[in-house]
Amino acid sequence: MRRRLPVALLLLTGMASCVAPSAQTPPVVPAPPVAAPEKAPLPEAPLVLRGEARQGSALYGTVPPGTVALRLGGQPVPFAPDGAFMVAFDRDSPTTLRLEADRSDGSTVARDLAVAPGNWRIEQVNASLTAGIPTAEFQARRAGELARIEAARATSAVSDGWRQSFIWPVRARISGLFGSQRIYRGTPGSYHSGVDIAAPAGATFVAPAGGVVVLAAQEPFTLEGRLLIIDHGMGLSSAFLHCARLDVKEGDVVHQGQVLGTVGATGRATGPHLHWGMKWTAARIDPVALVSQPTP
């Protein structure tokens, strides 16, 4: 005998048979990547330079429009918002260096600089080079002094003094030339790292250009005596050694021609004079090369 299904079950079965199969969701196809718009090439422009590339001297210039980085011999060179910059060449600089400006369109403008040799006064001495043995007290003091000098050199002050035509800090006879060196039976001694100006004790000296005082050693250093360092901006600095008195303090903003102190013979000096040294980043350069006035 055939068994009858309950009415409710028949209704459910019928409803299930009438339900349409659900449609499958189509796969999501990722949109193709949008290519970045190509940068329009910048117009060709040169590295503009003024002056002569020479050991111990400096050049001034302007970067091409769109420059984002500047290098000399692979080392970074700062430049101002208007594109102006300076570069300088150590007393023992290589005779060839490349100046490169990277631009925002990926291009590079480069110039190979032929660096002329400096005319240094070299003296041959028929004697052996003898060096004094530092005492324990000297060694203990010297470490702290060198740390202060290094910290001052690492400071990057904001100043436009580097743009100025430098003046003499004091006008007197030049008694020591930058770059001069003695050779002791074939062994070179240290070269003179600045210019000595034989002004009398107590004579005032002034700022050769504007800048910021980054070191003012009121307590004389063992070698430099009362030492003053002025940062002129863009990596250029002046150091004044053997001072009798300092009239400025660290952090002071000084202006060209402002009195900085007096000439003396503090530190290791045989008599009163002003030793004026200059550096651009790590390069030691001749202050005379930056002074627009004739030599005293």
Rank of each mutant, 00 (worst) to 15 (best):
A16E: 12
S17L: 15
S17N: 07
A20I: 08
P26W: 11
V28P: 00
V28E: 00
P33Y: 07
V34M: 11
V34F: 06
A36Y: 00
P37L: 11
P46R: 10
P46D: 15
V48D: 06
L49Q: 02
Q55I: 03
Q55H: 06
G56R: 06
G56S: 08
A58V: 02
A58N: 04
Y60D: 11
Y60S: 14
G61F: 04
V63A: 06
P64V: 09
P65H: 03
P65S: 04
G66D: 13
V68A: 06
V68E: 15
Q75I: 02
F79Y: 12
F79K: 01
D82N: 12
F85K: 01
F85Q: 06
V87I: 15
V87F: 03
D92Y: 07
S93F: 07
P94R: 10
L97G: 01
R98T: 09
E100Q: 12
E100I: 03
D105H: 08
S107Q: 10
T108Y: 00
V109P: 12
V109Q: 14
D112V: 11
L113C: 00
L113Q: 00
A114R: 11
A116N: 02
A116Q: 13
N119V: 11
N119C: 05
R121Y: 07
I122H: 09
V125F: 10
N126M: 11
N126V: 11
N126E: 15
T130D: 08
T130N: 11
G132H: 05
T135Q: 04
F138N: 03
G144I: 05
I149C: 10
E150C: 01
E150P: 01
A151T: 10
A151K: 12
T155Y: 09
S156A: 12
A157K: 05
D160E: 13
G161R: 01
